[in-house]
Simulated assay, not measured.
Amino acid sequence: MTPPGRTGLIDVHAHFVTDSYVRRARAAGHELPDGVPAWPTWSAAAHLELMDRGGIDTAVLSVSSPGVHFGDPAAARALAREVNEDGAETVRGHPGRFGLFASLPLPDVDASLAEAEYALDVLGADGVVLETNSHGVYLGDPRLEPLFAELGRRGAVVFLHPTSPVCWERSALGRPRPMVEFVFDTARTVTDLLFAGTLLRHPGLKVVVPHCGGALPVLADRINGFMRLFMPSEDGAPDAVAQLRELYYDVAGPAFPRQVPALLNLARPDRLLYGSDYCWTPAPAAAAHAASFTGAPGPVEGVSWPELTTRNARTLLPRLTG
């Protein structure tokens, strides 16, 4: 039976944590993850209750910051496999309600290639999640080229998620890193992809940028100008804005009233996606965000935000159409 209030929303920015994952992260020194006061708790039952209250049909689960690599490559490989198996079990146990973006043990490229193959081909993951940096290795780093080549060949969905930059001890000024550092680390790693030419070399990549693009909507023209200055060629400098318009963007976080208007000056309507950021966003705030999103006028006349973003998500993630 369809629960009352369901409107068909697909949430592409939803997280899960397990007791085992939290224990391992704490043992590695992440007692206060990214400077927030405490680890959240999560269960499929609580998540489904929130989804039903907010009119969300399906939530695509991923592991948030600090990811799965805490410094020991072998432990990172094992933890990536563990959380991906746990996520896939949740998907299987609740048909139609959950999807999965699989974690990879970057910056270990060979292990990440192996885990991506297993997660996509065996577990049936809907894509992969990549942190904005892995121990200071940003996504435009040439060492990651084999991974992006394979993901591009597959036409894989690549969900980006911010994490703390390696300089956070000074730059965060003692405040929780998700407030400001995450926003700028998102812009930093996407800019790195642009300057590295990764998106142009691998047009099959389907990249999802979180949190209304972070700082990218207000920096896009500045980035474009610098690319024209420092990347001239006979064919002309790459157009950063054109590349950014091909990416997907979720609206997780405090999207209204200011971030969404900035995003709409950059993103194409068919690239907009819904995101709740639950369970890192507490249930009351996630429910309030869903309500504000559902009631706001959509960017396309005659099409609501839920209709638009759900249509876009079903195009991007065809497994969720069933």
Score class of each variant (00 low, 15 high):
Glu145Met: 07
Pro178Val: 04
Arg177Ile: 11
Gly155Phe: 12
Leu173Val: 13
Arg154Asp: 02
Glu145Cys: 06
Phe159Ile: 00
Thr186Cys: 06
Phe182Pro: 14
Arg177Asp: 08
Leu173Trp: 12
Arg175Pro: 03
Ala172Lys: 00
Pro165Gln: 08
Ser171Gln: 05
Ser164Glu: 12
Asp185Glu: 15
Ala156Tyr: 05
Gly174Arg: 11
Cys167His: 12
Leu173Gly: 09
Arg175His: 13
Val166Gly: 02
Val183Leu: 15
Thr186Phe: 05
His161Lys: 02
Phe159Glu: 00
Leu173Lys: 13
Thr186Asn: 06
Gly174Ile: 12
Leu147Trp: 04
Thr186Ala: 06
Glu150Leu: 13
Pro165His: 09
Ser171Glu: 08
Phe159Arg: 03
Trp168Met: 05
Leu144Thr: 02
Thr163Tyr: 06
Val180Trp: 10
Glu169Asp: 12
Val157Cys: 02
Pro162Arg: 09
Leu173Pro: 06
Ala149Gly: 14
Val180Glu: 10
Ala187Tyr: 03
Phe148Met: 05
Cys167Met: 08
Gly155Leu: 09
Cys167Thr: 15
Ser164Pro: 00
Leu173Ala: 15
Ala172Gly: 04
Pro162Thr: 09
Met179Ser: 03
Arg170Val: 13
Val158Gly: 01
Pro146Ala: 11
Met179Leu: 13
Arg170Phe: 07
Glu169Phe: 09
Leu160Thr: 01
Phe182Tyr: 15
Pro162Val: 10
Ser171Asn: 05
Met179Glu: 05
Arg153Phe: 01
Pro162Glu: 07
Arg175Ile: 04
Ala149Lys: 14
Ala156Gln: 06
Glu181Asp: 15
Arg153Gln: 08
Leu151Cys: 03
Ala156Asp: 05
Glu145Thr: 14
Glu145Trp: 08
Phe182His: 15
Arg175Leu: 15
Arg170Ser: 09
Leu160Tyr: 02
Ala187Thr: 11
Gly155Ala: 08
Thr163Ile: 14
Thr186Ile: 07
Glu169His: 12
Ser171Gly: 00
Leu173Phe: 13
Val166Trp: 03
Ala149Gln: 15
Pro178Gln: 01
Arg170Cys: 00
Thr186Glu: 04
Glu145Asp: 15
Phe184Val: 15
Pro146Val: 10
Leu147Lys: 05
Phe182Glu: 14
Arg177Ala: 11
Leu147Arg: 04
Leu151Tyr: 01
Thr186Tyr: 04
Glu145Leu: 09
Arg175Asn: 11
Glu150Gly: 10
Glu169Lys: 10
Ala187Met: 07
Ala172Ser: 14
Arg175Gly: 08
